[in-house]
């Protein structure tokens, strides 16, 4: 090989000794740094790796929520099933306003009760995330909220965060927890967000919510999320509010935020 005689650099990150200078730097970032070049452009494995990640993210957006698997996870316990006014994914993506309102049939199917809180498992932009995290978080919350009147779980499809407002208002619940699939990125396609709103109503502003984000196997664990959420819910009940006022009262910054960007 000529490289043995003439020390020409190879294309990309590896020098002639075969040592990859980029490897030690990758501990500091998940960014796709130091990708080798073929001419000006990327090598085949990196091109395909990107496409695979993009495919996974798109599948998370477009695969319908598997309600049967949620039913299985609920182990025979009853839950309620609603849909937004967006009849399909394509409409859902174009019309966020429809994803925030219940379909006529869905509203009629929701029972009224004297509930402190209703939990909503919503598909959002990643059904994968909801399928994976919603039922475990619901179970973890019930362990932490003894004495609370908790409504049956509501499973919502083609749903945006604000759909929870109408669900809670229809059922007469004092607050709503929406567990929803976040917009997937290339590195994480199964991240779930949780939005807490006290005394929600149709049209209530996003600034009156608190959120926990980044709940997935490599991010915030269900257990840690449940602890933070339980604290938020108790404080919300005590202060009779959620949103910026509650964020400011939080003991630690952590993952507790007010809402900047909704799915």
């Amino acid at each position: 090989m000529s490289a043995d005689i003439t020390p020409l650099p190879s294309a990309g990150g590896q020098d002639v000794t075969g040592q990859d200078d980029w490897q030690p730097l990758r501990q500091y970032t998940r960014a796709r740094i130091g990708l080798a070049r073929s001419g000006n452009t990327l090598k085949t494995p990196d091109v395909l790796e990107f496409q695979a990640a993009h495919a996974q993210a798109r599948d998370a957006v477009h695969t319908p929520l598997d309600v049967a698997s949620i039913e299985q996870a609920m182990a025979g316990e009853a839950f309620l099933r609603v849909n937004s006014r967006a009849p399909d994914r394509s409409t859902y993506l174009r019309r966020p306003d429809l994803g925030r309102r219940l379909s006529e049939g869905s509203r009629a199917a929701l029972p009224k009760g004297d509930w402190d809180v209703v939990f909503v498992a919503a598909d959002g932009l990643s059904s994968t995330a909801t399928q994976q995290g919603a039922v475990p978080l619901f179970a973890a919350m019930r362990e932490r909220l003894s004495g609370w009147q908790i409504a049956p779980l509501v499973v919502a499809t083609q749903a945006r965060v604000a759909l929870g407002d109408e669900i809670a208002q229809t059922m007469g619940a004092g607050m709503v927890v929406v567990m929803i699939g976040e917009r997937p990125g290339l590195s994480v396609a199964d991240s779930m967000g949780v939005y807490l709103t006290y005394a929600p109503y149709v049209g209530c502003p996003d600034s009156s919510r608190n959120c926990l984000s980044n709940i997935h196997p490599h991010g915030l664990s269900v257990r840690a999320a449940a602890d933070k959420l339980a604290w938020l819910m108790r404080e919300a009940r005590h202060l009779k509010l959620t949103g910026v006022g509650l964020k400011d009262a939080a003991p630690e910054g952590g993952a507790i935020g007010s809402v900047d960007r909704l799915s």
Partner: peptide, 17 residues
């Protein structure tokens, strides 16, 4: 952005390549 993948804003732009 490196490899067209913005790992903070979670979207895809152009790569340096």
């Amino acid at each position: 952005v490196p490899g067209a993948d913005d790992v903070m804003l979670n979207y895809q732009s152009l790569s340096f390549h």
